Simulated scan of single mutants.
Amino acid sequence: MRIDIISCVPNLLDSPFSHSILQRANDKSLSEVHVHDLRKYAVDKHGHIDDYAYGHGAGMVIMCDPIFNCINDLKKEREYQEVIYMTPDGEVFNQQIANHLSISCENIIILCGHYKGIDQRVRDEIITREISIGDYVLSGGELAAAVVTDAIIRLLPGVLGDETSALTDSFQDGLLAPPVYTRPKEWNGKQVPDILLSGHESKIDEWRLEESMSRTKERRPDLWNNYINSQPEAKPKKKRK
């Protein structure tokens, strides 16, 4: 997978992709992340990429041409399945979207918002998907783009050491993950649950499911309601005529 990120402040993204899982994915040639400086596509020699908004109001708006020219250059080299714009008014990112993008896309462009955002005409003509990472506003879309990139790449086959690890993450089955424990068996007077030491895999799986359900019901009633409604037994049976 290749992800091209377009940013007004590309240096903000130096660190996230230079360490840990994303770096290992790059070293294994499982993914590539390229960050592009939008200012290289400025409309004049002064490096302008933004201007005042029509209709007055505070804040600057990124102009059409720098974005169009950058994306057009990228599209000359390869086909992109998605051109994503990170914006507070996009659809809220979740595990299902990450799963879909990791499976269905080979090349992705992510455009980072900045200032008051981008000219609406770019959103209408070029952007294929708009994503938010939550109901709050950041100084720019760079950190949000890093979050989305991390969530997608870690799902690619071969990226994680254990292929089943991502399958047991929170949200993959609509539930929060159960508690986890490691050595020592006793710490500060607290014991690891006996079931986890039993070696009985099916009973351990049952315990984990029960803990996931309990934790989700307590901490995220919204997820719990969605989970309950998604179960086959929760759906009303059709009446026979």
Rank of each mutant, 00 (worst) to 15 (best):
L13E: 08
V92I: 06
D124W: 00
E125Y: 06
E82R: 11
E77H: 06
K237Y: 01
I97V: 13
R121V: 04
R2L: 06
L196V: 01
D194L: 09
S31P: 03
R123H: 10
V180Y: 08
H48E: 14
R121Y: 13
Q172R: 09
Q191N: 11
I133F: 10
V147F: 07
I62E: 07
G134V: 12
E206D: 09
V33Q: 07
G174S: 04
D119L: 10
L12Q: 06
K241A: 07
G59I: 14
Q191F: 08
S18Y: 02
Y52V: 14
L38C: 09
A146N: 03
V43L: 11
I49R: 12
S15Q: 06
Q81E: 15
V122G: 05
N69H: 10
S20V: 06
L38D: 15
L156P: 02
V180Q: 12
M86R: 02
D37T: 07
N94G: 11
S139K: 05
G199A: 08
I110Q: 07
N225Y: 00
D51W: 08
I71F: 07
E186N: 11
D135F: 05
H200F: 08
I5H: 00
T149M: 07
I67L: 15
D162S: 12
S230W: 00
L160M: 13
K116Y: 03
S31D: 00
Q120W: 13
D205H: 15
N94Q: 09
E77L: 05
H19K: 02
D135H: 10
E186P: 11
I103Y: 00
T149S: 11
S31A: 15
D194Q: 15
G117A: 14
P88S: 02
E201R: 12
Q120H: 14
Q191H: 10
C64F: 13
S132E: 05
S198Q: 03
R78W: 08
M1F: 06
G174Y: 00
N107C: 14
D173T: 09
D150F: 06
I6S: 12
I131M: 06
E77A: 03
N188T: 03
H34T: 13
T87P: 04
E106T: 07
I6W: 10
S198G: 01
V33G: 07
D4T: 04
D135S: 15
D73C: 04
K28R: 12
C8P: 07
Y227C: 00
S214H: 12
E218P: 06
I3M: 10
P88N: 02
K235P: 03
V9Q: 04
K40V: 09
R78E: 11
P236I: 09
N99Y: 00
L22S: 03
L143K: 11
R183C: 00
T182R: 01
I110G: 11
K217L: 14
E82C: 00
A42R: 11
G47S: 13
I108N: 09
H56T: 08
L160N: 04
